[in-house]
Write a protein that binds this DNA or RNA. Sequence first.
DNA 1: ACTTAATTTGCACGTTTATGCATGTTCAGT
DNA 2: ACTGAACATGCATAAACGTGCAAATTAAGT
Lengths: 264, 264
Amino acid sequence: MLKLKEERHQFILDEIRANNKVLSSELSTRLKVSEDTIRRDLRELSDLGAIRRVHGGAVKNNNEINLEDHSDSSAYIPFSYEDREVYSKSKKEKIAEKAVSLLRDDDVILIDGGTTNLELAKRIPKDYKGTIITNCLPIATKLVEHRFVDVYFLGGRILPNALVTVGHSVIQELKEIRADICFLGTRSIDVQRGITDIDRVEVEVKMAMSKSAENVVSVASSDKLFTNQPFLCVSSKNVTTLITELDPNEAALRPFVENGTKVL
Amino acid sequence: MLKLKEERHQFILDEIRANNKVLSSELSTRLKVSEDTIRRDLRELSDLGAIRRVHGGAVKNNNEINLEDHSDSSAYIPFSYEDREVYSKSKKEKIAEKAVSLLRDDDVILIDGGTTNLELAKRIPKDYKGTIITNCLPIATKLVEHRFVDVYFLGGRILPNALVTVGHSVIQELKEIRADICFLGTRSIDVQRGITDIDRVEVEVKMAMSKSAENVVSVASSDKLFTNQPFLCVSSKNVTTLITELDPNEAALRPFVENGTKVL
DNA sequence: ACTTAATTTGCACGTTTATGCATGTTCAGT
DNA sequence: ACTGAACATGCATAAACGTGCAAATTAAGT
C-alpha cells in the first residue's frame, strides 16, 4: 500500500485533479489511515497552497485571473505544476531569492517556464526597471503588475500543462533578441552533459533562449543535480551560473565550480 | 453526489451563471438537501456578494466592479420577477452568449482582448473542440482549461492595462493565419466608418486580425453604437456581424442591417 | 547493530460546523 | 385581506475538526 506520507500527498493531489474534490472520510478508508492523518495531510498541502481545505475534505484551489482583478496577490499555481514538486517550496524560494540578486536595472531578461521561475517573478521588486521576455503565461501575468517593466511575450502554441508557448514562432522571435540573462527552469543538470529535459518541443525553446542570452542561469533544486534526460538543452560549458537551494560551498557543487560554472 | 458545501455553492453559482436565476425549491430537490440548507447557502453566497437573494431563490447580482459601466445602476430599481430574468443578465453576458452560438467545432477562431471577449471565453463549452488564437493574457489563461482547444498566443509587447500584446511581431504572425471567425472587442462602431478605436497600436493589431479572418464579428454594447474614435480598425463593409445586448429587431440596429451587416 | 532523536501516527478529548426540523413570521399573488 | 409558500430563528444531533499526548515508526549517528 501507500506507506509514505509523500505517496499519500501525491495520491490526494491526483485525486483532486481528477475529481476537483476529496473527502476526508473517503481518503481515510481508501488509504487505510485515520482521518486525523488525512486532515494533517490536507493541512500540509493547503499550507503549500496546493489545495483548499473545506469542511469535509478539500477542493481544487481555483484562483482565477481576470481583467477586473489582475492585482491578485494570491499565488497562481497552475495544477499541473503541482505534481512536479510541491514539497520543496522552501527550496524554490531560496533559489528565487538568489536569482533575484542577479538582476540589474535596465537588463533584458529572458525567463523560461516552471514553478521556480514563477517564484522568481513574484520576488522581483515592484520598482525594478527593465525588459523581461517570457514564454510562460502565469509569469507574464504576474509581471504586468510591475510598472517599470516592459513585458514581452513569445507567441506560439500553448502547452496546457506547462503553460508555456512552444514552436517555430517562439524560436524565430528569439533569434531577433539579445538578452543579458536567461533563467532556465531545469529538470536535470549534469556536469558532463549540462541541462537536459524530457519534452522535445520545450527543449527546442530552451535551447533557443540560451542562445539569445549573454548569461545562462540554471535554476535547479539539488535533486535535479547529476540527473539526466533524453534531450540536451544547453551543453555544460554554456551554463554560466547554477543556482540551487544549497550553500555554494557544499561538496556536491564542487564539480560544477571546477567545470567553470558560477554557483550561487 | 455533491457532499461538500463547497460543491453546492459552486453548483449554485454555475446555475446562476447559466440561467441568471435559481429557485430554492428546485435546488433542494436537485441537490437532495433541505430548503433550509439551500437558504443558508444562498445567504452565504449573498454575503460574499456573489449573488443577490430574492424571494424564492436568488439572481445574478449586477453590481459590476467595472468602473466605466455605471449604466447598470438600474439594479437598484425594483422590478417584477419576470423582468428580472431580462435585466439580471449583464450586457456583456448577453453578448457573450450570442457570440458563443456562432462557434462551430474545428473552427479557427481569433479572439481580441476586452472584458466582453473574456466573458465569451468563459462561456465556451468545456467540450468545444477547435483552434483559438488570441493576444490577450487572461483569455489565454482561461482557455487552457479547455482540453480540446489548441490555444495559440500572439507574441509581442504586453500592454499592462489591456493585457493584450501589440506590435510588429503580432501583426507578422497574423499574416500567416487564416481564421474562420474573428471576435473584435469594440470601443466604437458606426454605420458609415465601421469599427474605430483610440489606441494606435491596438488598432493596428485589430486591423490585422480582421484581415486574417473570414468573418469579422464586432462585440459591442449598445452604448458603443454610432460613436467614433480617431483610428479606423475595420471599415463598415468588412464587418460581417454585429453583436449587441439588444434585440436584433431593435430600431437602433436597423441601419446596420440595411448596410448588409448581420445583427445578432 | 544499537541507541537516540525526530518524525509520524492514532486515540481521547472537547469544540466547531453543518444540517434538518419545529416554530412563528413575512411575503406575494389572487 | 386572505392564503399558501417562502422565510428566519432557535434548537438538537451527528459529523468533522483541532489539540495534546503516547505509541509506533523512521532516520541518524556512533
